[in-house]
Design a protein around this nucleic acid. Structure first.
Lengths: 134, 134
DNA sequence: TGTTGACCCTGTACCGACTACAGGGTGCAG
DNA sequence: CTGCACCCTGTAGTCGGTACAGGGTCAACA
């Protein structure tokens, strides 16, 4: 049988989170405060583990904590249609696409600059002049 | 003839920066404090404009303020070989490549989830279950 | 039984790179 | 001379944590 409760350290390790971060999530109200042991240690249930896993995974996917809050709120009130969730994800995908194309533009620009300074002095460094006011 | 001095608002507009950000740059010592008018307004020279343009452009390209500081220090002490600058840029390019591939992986994952929830209820939403503990 | 040492507690301050006021002063046009 | 846009300083807030300081708890081992 599974252990009924987990310490904060176990929870943190299981979800690849720092202990301080778990406490931070509790403080900002995204992870409910668990029961305490007689020694005042936090005692987390499987539900806490599930919720923290959800939060971490969504964070890994780049959702902000506010978006995670929204997703959790939706998940909590079941029986609604999940178009809202889909819309949230689509919006997020559009953000990601924007970032990717920005980074690609940046990459092109920067890689064009590299390797042009092999023996020059700062005075005629192409990277610095590319960054200088046009 | 060009105007000799610029107000903080003009400088900000010319470099697409917020006025508060310009003051912030001065406070952290990356943009030198300009002369003041009799009314205690900041009066920026063309040199300030050039330096701020440099900072903003480097920031747009994703350099941190610390990296910008390093670039400015190099640019200031001319006549050195610019291999250092080149190395800094190469390092940065590697960062960009990492970011791009991370985002692409994320994109794949997220776009696989989207569009699977057309008529379901939250109870069987694939996005939510993909986020739930495995 | 006593003492290590790993873990836990609270509270607060800090990070980067800004952003947003509050509460006041300046400068110019009508 | 009044109104308004702009400027000043100083401080606090944003996001998502991270890093202590200064203590308490617990289990194992001598």
């Amino acid at each position: 049988m599974e252990k009924a409760y987990h310490s904060i350290g176990e929870l943190a390790e299981a979800t690849d989170t720092k202990v301080e971060t778990v406490r931070y999530y509790e403080r900002i109200g995204i992870l409910p405060a668990p029961k305490r042991t007689s020694g005042n240690y936090r005692a987390y249930s499987a539900g806490h583990l599930a919720r923290l896993s959800f939060i971490r995974r969504a964070r890994d996917l780049g959702f902000t904590l506010d978006q995670v809050r929204a997703l959790l709120a939706l998940a909590d009130q079941k029986k609604q249609d999940c178009g809202t969730v889909d819309a949230l994800a689509r919006e997020h995908l559009a953000d990601i696409d924007r970032k990717i194309s920005d980074l690609k533009a940046l990459r092109r620009e920067l890689s064009g600059l590299i390797g042009q300074c092999k023996q020059g002095t700062i005075a005629d460094c192409r990277i610095l002049s590319a960054l200088s006011p046009r």
